[in-house]
Design a protein around this nucleic acid. Structure first.
Lengths: 348, 348
DNA sequence: CTGTTAGCGCGTTCAT
DNA sequence: ATGAACGCGCTAACAG
C-alpha cells in the first residue's frame, strides 16, 4: 500500500510524545532533577542541567501542560463566549485579550453560542469542565444581557454587552460620550444645523448615541434639526432618511449617522442631490468599520469604539480577579475616539 | 468592608471546586463507583447511582476534563491558527468546525498570529503543550503558505490557504470554478460582451478567478472584452476601472468583479454614467460578503466560497486523522455557489 | 455490583 | 546537588 506512510504525514509522528521520564532516563538522572533542570531552577549543577537539556532536545520533549495544570490548578486558558456571528466585535476583543495576556502565555477558547441560550449553556459547561481560568462574555449589542450568575468557580467579565446584574463586572462602549464627540467635532467644523439618522430604537446603542448628541447640542445652545430618525441599521435606510430629511430641512449642514452603514447611505443621497460632502453637509458616523469607512466617497469620519482596548481591559480584569485583586463591580464605560476623514474635513 | 463579598461575586465561589472524592465521600461509596455512576456505566446499582448523582448535584460537581485527558490522551480540543486579522474567513470556518465536531464536544483555541512567523511559532508551541488533538491552519489568502512540517505529533489541516507542501492536507476555495459559475450565469442572462475587473495580480485568488472566467468564455466561443484589469482590492479601483473600461468599450453588457468591494465601485460608476444595472450592464462578483452585497443598489449577485462548509470539511479531515483513518494528502478544491441578487437579474 | 490498586505526566517536599 | 516519595483528579483493570 503506497499510501501507508501518507497517513503518517497527516497524522504526524505516530509514537506517543516524549515524557519527562524519557528525558530523565536518557540524561541518567531522576525525574525530579530533570524537572528542575528544565524549569530553570537554581538547585541543579550546570553540567547536569546541560545533559538534561540535550536529552530534551534530542527527543523533542514538550512538557505536558495538562499535567502541570492538574497540579497548580491553573490552565492558562480563558474562554471567550460570544454571540457575535459576524465576528466584527469579537475579533478585536480577542486580539486585545491576547495582547493583555501576552501571546502564547494564555490561550483563548472561542465559543460561538449563536444567540442560542442552550448552546451557550453547553459551551459554558465545556469551558468549566476544561477548567478555564476565566470567562469573557461578548455580546453583539450594547443592550444588557442575562448574567451567568455568581455560582461560577471562575471570574467572569462581560464585554460589549454589559450584564443585567449590576454586581457583575462589565465593560461597554460609552456611546453617549461618542455622541458628544461627534457633535463637538461638527461644531468645531463650523456646523450648527445638525440632524441625526440612526438605527433601530430597540438598541441601546441607537438611543445612547442620540442622547449623547442631544446633550452635547444643548450644552452648545443648539437643538437637533428635526427629530432623531430611527429605523434599520442599513444603507437603504440611510439613503431614504437623508432624502426625507434634506427635503424638509434643506438648511442642514451636518448629519450624525448612527453607523457607518447608515452614513454610506447618507453620502449616496447627498451626492444624488447634487450637494457636496463635506462642504455643504458634513457627515460623521459610528463604528469606524474600516472596510466601509475608507471605501466611500469621501471617506468617513467615524467614532471608533476602541474594541481592542476593550478586550485588553476585559482581559486585565479577568487577570486581576484570578490574582485575587478586588475588582470593582458595575459597568465601566469605555470612551471611543474620533477618526478624522474626508466626510467632515475637506482633503487638501 | 462592604466590598469584601463583592470580590467573591467577581471571583466566583472562592473554595476549590468539588472533586470526585468529595462526591464519593458524601454518597458513601468509593471513587471508582462514583466514577462509574457519573459516567453512566452499567455496572452500578440504580439506587447507588442515584445516591451518587444526588451528591454530585449537591456540591455542583464538574468533572475535571484535564484529569480525564491526562488518562486517555485526548483533550477534545483543536487549535485554529490564523493570520486573518479581520476574521472574515476565520469565523465561518470556526463555525463550520464547531458544527462538525458538535457544539461543546470539542473546543477550539483561536490563535491569531497576525502574519508574524515568530508569533505563529509561539502559538504553535502553546497549542502542542496544551495537547490539542489537531490543528487547523487558516490563511488569509488562497496563496500557498509555508508548511508547519511533518514533525508534529498531531494532524494538521490547512484551510483557505493551502500548504506549499503537497504531502500536507489542504482545503481551499475553487476560484477557477467560481469564475466559470460567474461567466455561465452572465451568459444565461443573455450577456456576451463581458469584461473583468479584479484585485492585485500577486494574489492567486485574482489570477485563478480570471483564468476560470477566460476558460468559461472560451468554452462558449466568446472572448473577454479588453484585458483583465488587475489592481487594488478596493471600491476606488472598481470605480476607476469601470470608468476606463466603459469609455473604451461602451458595448460591454456584463462585468465580473473580483470582489464585492470592487463590484460596489463598479455599480457606482455605471450609475454615474446613467446606465442601468442589470438592464444595461449585469455585474457579478466574488465573496458574497453580505454586508456589502446586500446594501448596494442593486444588491449584488456574488459567488459564495462556502467557507462554513470549508470549516466543516477541515474539521472532518482532522477528525478522520485522529481516528486513524487515512486521509488523502494534497489540495482539495471546494466549489463555491452563486447567490443571485439584483445586479444580474431585474427584481420583480 | 462494589472496592482496591495502579498510573496518566508532572512538580514539590524532604531526606540524603 | 540529587533522588525517593507523594499527590493533583480521574479512569481502568482487576479482585472481591
Amino acid at each position: 500500500m503506497p499510501d501507508s506512510d501518507v497517513g503518517a504525514s497527516v497524522t504526524g509522528t505516530p509514537g506517543r510524545a516524549a515524557t519527562l521520564g524519557d528525558v530523565a532516563r536518557i540524561a541518567g538522572v531522576s525525574m525530579a532533577t530533570a524537572s528542575k533542570a528544565i524549569n530553570g531552577r537554581s538547585e541543579v549543577a550546570p553540567k547536569t542541567r546541560q545533559r538534561v537539556l540535550d536529552a530534551a532536545k534530542e527527543v523533542a520533549f514538550t512538557p505536558n501542560e495538562l499535567a502541570r495544570s492538574l497540579i497548580n490548578g491553573r490552565t492558562g486558558t480563558v474562554g471567550l463566549l460570544t454571540s457575535d456571528l459576524e465576528g466584527r466585535f469579537v475579533i478585536p476583543i480577542l486580539m486585545g485579550a491576547e495582547d493583555a495576556f501576552g501571546a502564547g502565555q494564555v490561550n483563548v477558547f472561542l465559543c460561538d453560542a449563536r444567540g442560542d441560550a442552550i448552546r451557550e449553556q453547553h459551551h459554558l459547561n465545556a469551558l468549566l469542565t476544561r477548567r478555564v481560568d476565566g470567562i469573557i462574555v461578548v455580546g453583539r449589542t450594547t443592550d444588557p444581557r442575562p448574567s451567568l450568575g455568581h455560582k461560577l468557580p471562575v471570574p467572569v467579565v462581560y464585554a460589549y454587552a454589559p450584564s443585567d446584574d449590576p454586581t457583575d463586572v462589565s465593560i461597554t462602549p460609552d456611546n453617549r460620550d461618542g455622541g458628544r464627540l461627534a457633535v463637538e467635532h461638527l461644531i468645531a467644523c463650523g456646523r450648527s444645523r445638525i440632524a441625526m439618522i440612526t438605527g433601530e430604537p430597540q438598541y441601546a446603542a441607537a438611543r445612547d448615541r442620540v442622547t449623547g448628541v442631544q446633550n452635547a447640542l444643548a450644552a452648545a445652545g443648539l437643538d437637533l434639526v428635526g427629530t432623531p430618525m430611527f429605523s434599520e441599521w442599513t444603507e437603504h435606510w440611510g439613503r431614504d432618511a437623508a432624502a426625507m430629511l434634506l427635503a424638509q430641512h434643506p438648511e442642514i449642514d451636518g448629519i450624525v449617522a448612527g453607523s457607518d452603514q447608515i452614513a454610506r447611505g447618507v453620502l449616496d443621497t447627498v451626492r444624488d442631490l447634487g450637494r457636496d460632502v463635506p462642504t455643504d453637509v458634513a457627515v460623521v458616523s459610528f463604528d469606524n468599520w474600516e472596510i466601509l469607512a475608507t471605501n466611500s466617497r469621501p471617506e468617513l469620519s467615524s467614532i471608533d469604539a476602541n474594541l481592542q482596548q476593550l478586550g485588553r481591559l476585559a482581559a486585565t480584569r479577568i487577570f486581576e480577579a484570578i490574582e485575587g485583586t478586588d475588582v470593582a463591580p458595575g459597568v465601566e464605560y469605555l470612551p471611543g475616539r474620533l477618526v478624522l476623514r474626508g466626510s467632515t474635513i475637506p482633503r487638501r
